[in-house]
């Protein structure tokens, strides 16, 4: 792990099932995340992914790469273009800096999730790898 390292991309097919399952798993029952008719009545072309699911996917992207010993310290995300059903979100990440401390190496990773209409998410994740840990 070093500054400038690029993480392999993760393609996430944005299915209706993922949007609804993510909303319910995060206990978010806002209608715009599961009811297309009500979403349209609110001016959205379809249901769209909730921010908690995006947050979960960003966290998963980082721990998929750094392994099960990686400790997420901070996940900060900003949403842009919504994730609508049928789209694909491509997550990419770049290690911005690495600080070595008593707990291990702590990396700051910039993450971007792009979909067919733009940038769905931009974010920064801080993750610590215990000394002697994987990756």
């Amino acid at each position: 792990m070093r500054a400038g390292e690029e993480l392999p991309v993760l393609e996430v097919p944005v299915t209706r099932t993922l949007i609804v399952a993510g909303a319910i798993a995060s206990r978010d029952y806002q209608d715009v995340h599961h009811d297309a008719e009500l979403a349209k009545a609110k001016g959205s072309p379809d249901i769209f992914m909730n921010i908690l699911t995006t947050n979960g996917l960003v966290g998963r992207y980082i721990t998929d790469h750094f392994g099960p010993t990686a400790n997420l310290r901070k996940v900060a995300i900003r949403l842009g273009a919504p994730n609508y059903p049928g789209d694909t979100m491509v997550l990419s990440g770049t290690v911005e800096k690495v600080d070595t401390g008593p707990e291990g190496d702590t990396a700051t990773v910039k993450v971007i999730g792009a979909n067919g209409i733009g940038r769905h998410v931009t974010g920064t994740v801080t993750v610590t790898l215990p000394a002697g840990g994987a990756a």
Binding site: I24, S26, G56, R60, D64
Partner: peptide
């Protein structure tokens, strides 16, 4: 159970 439902939805297979 809620952890498992979350991981299923996110496709997260982290053994932790």
């Amino acid at each position: 159970p809620m952890i498992r439902h979350w991981c299923e939805a996110m496709g997260d297979t982290n053994p932790a």
